[in-house]
Amino acid sequence: MSTITPFHVAIPVHNLAECRTFYRDVLNCSEGRSSDHWVDFNFFGHQLVIHYKPKSEEELHTNPVDGKNVPVPHYGVVLPWDIFQEFSEDLKTKGIEFIIEPYIRFKGEVGEQATMFFLDPAGNALEFKAFKDMGQLFAK
Rank of each mutant, 00 (worst) to 15 (best):
H37Y: 07
S30W: 06
T93F: 09
V49L: 12
S35P: 12
V77P: 10
Y23S: 06
Q136N: 13
F41T: 05
K55D: 06
A122S: 15
D90W: 03
H61Q: 15
K140Y: 05
L79F: 11
H8W: 11
C19L: 07
N69L: 12
K55N: 00
L137E: 03
N69Q: 15
A114R: 14
E101S: 13
R33M: 13
V70F: 14
T21V: 14
A122T: 05
L126I: 11
Q47Y: 01
M134V: 06
G108I: 08
N28L: 14
E109Y: 11
T21D: 12
N124W: 05
D36C: 06
E101D: 15
L119S: 10
P73F: 05
K140G: 14
L79W: 01
D120V: 02
L79K: 07
A114Q: 15
G95M: 03
H8G: 04
F106W: 14
E18S: 08
F87P: 06
F43V: 10
A10V: 12
E58C: 06
V49D: 07
L60G: 00
E58I: 14
F117R: 09
F106D: 15
P102V: 11
P80F: 09
P64S: 14
D133V: 13
F128C: 01
N42I: 07
H51R: 03
G95Q: 02
G45N: 10
G32E: 05
N15Y: 01
L91M: 10
S34Q: 15
V9S: 04
K140I: 12
H8M: 07
F106R: 11
K94C: 10
G111P: 11
A125F: 02
N69Y: 01
G108R: 15
W81L: 10
N124D: 12
H51D: 03
N42W: 05
K68M: 04
Q85K: 14
V72E: 13
K53C: 00
L16C: 07
F98E: 09
K132Q: 13
H8F: 13
P71V: 03
K55P: 00
P6K: 14
L60H: 02
K107T: 09
T62W: 03
D40V: 13
I100Y: 08
Q113F: 05
D82V: 04
F87T: 04
H74R: 11
V39E: 07
V9P: 10
L48Y: 13
G67M: 07
I96K: 05
V77F: 00
G95E: 07
I104A: 05
F7V: 14
Q47M: 15
